[in-house]
Structure formats: C-alpha cells, structure tokens
C-alpha cells in the first residue's frame, strides 16, 4: 500500500502517518500540508504544498500512491478565518479529487475525515441522524457550508469513479489528550458555559477511536458514508459533572452576541455551531459503521471520563515532554543519508 496523507501538519495527519509507518504492508507514506508535521515521524516523506493542494496531481503521479487519506478538513471554525477555511475545505478537496480522478491515476481508495457538523443542530432534528437523514434547515455557518460542499464533491467523485473505493467518516465531537476542540477548550475553563434553560444531549468520540476508525477504513474495504460517534448520549450538565466543572449560564437569547465580549477578552471562543449544540445538541446513529465490524474503545461517557482523567494528570504533571519541532535537515539525513543503517527494526 502506498498512502498519501493530507494535513500532515495537523494532529490527525501526523498521528495517522505514525500509525501507517508502523505497518509493514504500507510501503510509502507521503504527507502534504502547508505546515510542518506536528509529531516525530520515521519514514514519512513530507511535501510542503499550498493550502489548496494545487500541485497534488504531480505528487500523485510521481509517487503512484494507491490510497489517499484526506484528514485535512477543518472542522473547528475558531482556528482559521472563513476565507482560509473555504480554501482548505472546498478548494483543497476539489484539487485533491481532481488529482485522484485524473486519467491514469493510480488511486484506488480515498478516505475522507468529515464531521457530524454536516447535520447541523436544530429543534426540528430527529434525535438520531442516520447517514441519509437530510438536514432540517440549510447550513447556518461557513464551516457547515464548506463541509457540505466538500462532501458533495466527494459524492460526485464516487459516482464518476466507480473503480475507486470512497469512504466518508463523519466524526462527532472529539475529546482527547491532544485535541484542542472548542468543547475541550470550554471544559478546560474553571467553569463551563451553558445556555440558560437548555441541557442538550451530546455525543462524543475519543481521539483514539478517531485514529482507529480512520485506520480501520484504510485497511479494510468499506465504501460509503458512516457516522462515527461513541455509544450513548450524555447531557451537557452530566458532562460537566463527570468533568467536575461548575456551569455558568449564558443568556439563551442573542447568545452569539453575549459571547462576543468573552471572545474579545480571549477567554473562550464559542463558535455559532457550538452554541447551537449547547442549545439543541445532536445525536447520530452509529450502527452502520459498527456493522462493518468496527469496535469502539470508548463510549460517550467513557470519552468524557477519559478526558477528565487526562486533564487531572496534566494539572498534576504539566502537559508533558518538550514540543516536537520538525527540522528539514535532520529529517532528510535520517531518511536519505547513506550513513544511516535502515531496516533494523
């Protein structure tokens, strides 16, 4: 297997490259991103591209990869401007699929890491979205729009290229030791925000399960769209109880305006899609992915509990070792210098 990973500069990209490196049947791992890998890697080849992956076609042709792991969909709108997000999610996916669908393309499998944000969050929603349940109203935020758009590109691609196995995984809200998601951020605060009078049902997935799910689809042939979320739903108040956090109520009307001063003070950023979740929550039916044989390590409550444990550890011993920094010379030396004896493991 020869694999191309997009978003190597993100946690997910680097983390998956690590997993792929550990597998003997993966001959080549190529990673692309605008920024350097976040985690130390052994044999992954890093290529710096622009955010919209415009040179991907050349890379795909040159490396003859047969599998593409598209982890580079931005799902957290607090990190980037709307413009940059659009560039990565929509234009990036478009170029990636163009490269994968070129006339003599070697690509036979594409795995896309999407998000349950595509379902939105609204009072008319069913309590458990199935993969084919339509949204109850149009996209409300830029991030939802861009994810829907990139998913529709993927859908068209799957239709036009029946010889390519296409999998879309829609992950629910992620918590874990390393992830800085809006929910993780909110739960790190001394008191967690809530919308007065609302106590939504929420569903989480542990970061390890995200990696496992992506690896599972890379190593097994499961085409189609799948919801990936921990079993069970837990209300926000219970999440805060498991985390041992008191709650501070925000006004339920004009909540977005009320959050603005907190944003300005850089205390906490609750993007509109998270405010919607704090109001109505969201549940998805995760049974289709389980029917393919995947087993989750954590339930929703288990995920929250694991996150609480990891926070307690971090409070006690700090956030761990020194940050990894990618040095091009060093990495090139280890990968290509004749002085290095390879294949000893």
């Amino acid at each position: 297997m020869r694999v191309l990973v997009t978003g190597l500069g993100t946690f997910w990209g680097s983390r998956l490259a690590q997993e792929l490196e550990a597998r003997r049947d993966v001959e080549v791992v190529v990673g692309v991103d605008t920024t350097e890998p976040m985690l130390p890697l052994e044999r992954t080849e890093f290529v710096r591209t622009d955010s919209s992956h415009s040179i991907l076609q050349r890379i795909v042709q040159a490396t003859q990869v047969d599998t593409i792991l598209h982890t580079h969909l931005v799902v957290d709108s607090t990190k980037l401007s709307g413009r940059a997000m659009h560039e990565i999610n929509v234009i990036g996916t478009m170029n990636l699929l163009a490269a994968a669908g070129a006339a003599d393309s070697p690509v036979r499998k594409i795995v896309v890491k999407s998000s349950t944000l595509v379902y939105g969050s609204n009072y008319q929603d069913p309590y458990f979205f199935r993969e084919e349940t339509p949204r109850t109203r149009g996209p409300q935020t830029g991030i939802e729009r861009s994810l829907l758009e990139s998913e529709s590109f993927v859908r068209d691609f799957a239709e036009d290229n029946p010889h390519v196995l296409v999998t879309v995984l829609r992950f629910s809200n992620v918590l874990g030791d390393h992830m800085a998601t809006p929910f993780a951020h909110a739960l790190r605060l001394p008191a967690a925000p809530e919308l007065l009078g609302f106590d939504p049902r929420l569903q989480f997935i542990h970061e390890d399960d995200v990696v496992n799910a992506l690896m599972y689809t890379t190593t097994h042939d499961v085409a189609g769209i799948y919801n990936v979320a921990g079993d069970g739903l837990v209300t926000w108040s219970e999440v805060c109880r498991i985390m041992g956090r008191p709650r501070v109520p925000l006004p339920p009307v004009l909540a977005n305006l009320a959050v603005e001063p907190l944003r300005a003070m850089r205390l906490v950023d609750l993007p509109p899609e998270m405010l919607a979740l704090l109001r109505y929550g969201r549940g998805v039916d995760n049974s289709r992915f389980k029917r393919t044989g995947f087993r989750y390590k954590y339930t929703t409550a288990g995920t929250v509990d694991a996150f609480a444990r990891s926070l307690r550890l971090q409070r006690a011993v700090g956030s761990g070792g020194p940050e990894y920094r990618y040095e091009r010379d060093v990495e090139t030396f280890f990968r290509h210098s004749p002085a290095v004896v390879r294949g000893r493991r």
Binding site: E19, A22, R23, E131, E132, V154, R155, A158, E159, P162, V166, V168, D208, N212, M215, Y216, T219, H220, D221, V222, A223, G224, I225, Y226, R288, R291, T292, G293, F294, R295, K297, Y298, T299, G302, D305
Partner: peptide
Amino acid sequence: HLRESDDLNVEAPPQSTELVPVPQPE
C-alpha cells in the same frame, strides 16, 4: 449516499490484528 453504502449486512470482515480489536477498558 455513496455507492455500496447500503449493502453492509455483510458480517464482520476479518479484523486486522495490529490495530483494531482493541482491549475494552470500559
């Protein structure tokens, strides 16, 4: 939905030994 997404009544395919069948802590 995408191609083939519905015919998944296939019973659990053989699982890889390295990664997926994880011990269940909870």
